[in-house]
């Protein structure tokens, strides 16, 4: 048992199964790049090279990678036929509902799995700004985008909470720095939340990022907030003031695989009831990384606001 997770005993369904899942190595998933290759052609090509890939129900682009050499060391990977990416991360990008012709912002984009998926989902026909503050991680994002044949991404390097206000976006994805508890599986680093001050500090940054993102969003625009942590301080507690104040409403999320609803209470704190429409992804329910995903719609100005 990981001590930092003991505090989640009451909120994670089937907690013993959750703990057991943490002891198992996570499967590897890849996302076929349909800008380059069809799903069937991909499957056949990989099979002919001795790599068995199994489709994942509910996410048409997702395949589980079963055996053979590592997924990053094939000619097909080199040619941009697929990207290695967790199911939960794919779901976060899909949830944004991006459409061709729109202007999108991925505020904390590196290493680029979600931003490149957005480009794929819009057939390279939406203008996507992929922003990240880290020069090193932007290099990784650019390498992936080049390999995958992405021609619709503009890369910027602003601090997310200071991203210029000159441009309004139709949809924004905010996947901020987090304590990354969801990536804790066998062999992974220990959760940062062993020190609870970490979550509190991250909460302030996350609140600043999502608050600024709302200002960058056009009226009626969609914002997806996701993290790879279970910590309510970094999830529901970040979104509660936004929903409570009426700046945005939460759109219930219908995930294609089993997940738990967002929390309504935590440590005596009550959250806005609509937050149960968010999704908590646990590794014993969906065998990938732990995640939190919420979809918000920015409020349209009422006639009296003008």
């Amino acid at each position: 048992m990981v001590p930092a997770f003991e505090r989640y005993r009451a909120i994670i369904p089937n907690f013993p199964l959750f703990c057991e899942a943490l002891t198992l190595p996570p499967p590897t998933y890849v996302r076929v790049n349909t800008l380059r290759v069809g799903r069937d052609q991909f499957r056949q090509a990989m099979a002919s090279r001795g790599h068995r890939v199994t489709p994942v129900a509910g996410l048409p682009e997702a395949f589980e990678w079963n055996g053979g050499s590592g997924p990053g060391s094939t000619l097909e990977y080199f040619r941009g036929w697929y990207q290695v990416q967790g199911l939960s991360s794919m779901l976060a990008a899909r949830t944004l509902g991006a459409q061709a012709g729109e202007r999108l912002l991925d505020l904390c984009a590196a290493p680029g799995g979600k931003a490149t998926f957005l480009a794929q989902l819009t057939q390279n026909r939406a203008l996507i700004v992929a922003n990240d503050v880290s020069h090193r991680r932007i290099g990784i994002l650019r390498s992936h985008a080049d390999r995958l044949g992405i021609t619709s991404i503009v890369v910027t390097r602003y601090q997310g909470q200071h991203f210029p206000m000159r441009i309004a976006f139709d949809r924004i994805l905010v996947d901020p720095p987090c304590s990354a508890e969801g990536t804790y599986r066998t062999g992974a680093r220990r959760p940062l939340t062993e020190d609870l001050d970490v979550s509190r500090r991250l909460h302030r940054l996350q609140a600043a990022l999502v608050g600024h993102a709302l200002k960058l969003l056009g009226p009626g625009g969609t914002l997806v907030y996701s993290t790879c942590t279970y910590a309510p301080e970094e999830n529901e507690a970040v979104l509660h003031p936004i929903v409570e104040s009426g700046q945005a409403e939460l759109i219930p999320l219908h995930a294609p695989f089993p997940c738990a609803p967002g929390l309504e209470t935590w440590n005596g704190e009550r959250f806005h009831p609509s937050l149960k429409g968010a999704a908590r992804l646990y590794p014993h329910l969906v065998n990938s990384w732990g995640f939190f995903i919420a979809c918000l719609r920015k409020r349209e100005p009422a006639p009296g606001d003008l």
Partner: peptide, 24 residues
């Protein structure tokens, strides 16, 4: 660089400090 030519692109190119624009 080659970037998909979409309405609003000029606004991004002028309005933001850009590290990369499309594909080298």
């Amino acid at each position: 660089w080659a970037i998909t030519d979409l309405p609003g692109l000029d606004e991004l190119l002028v309005g933001l400090k850009i590290e990369a624009a499309g594909l080298p």
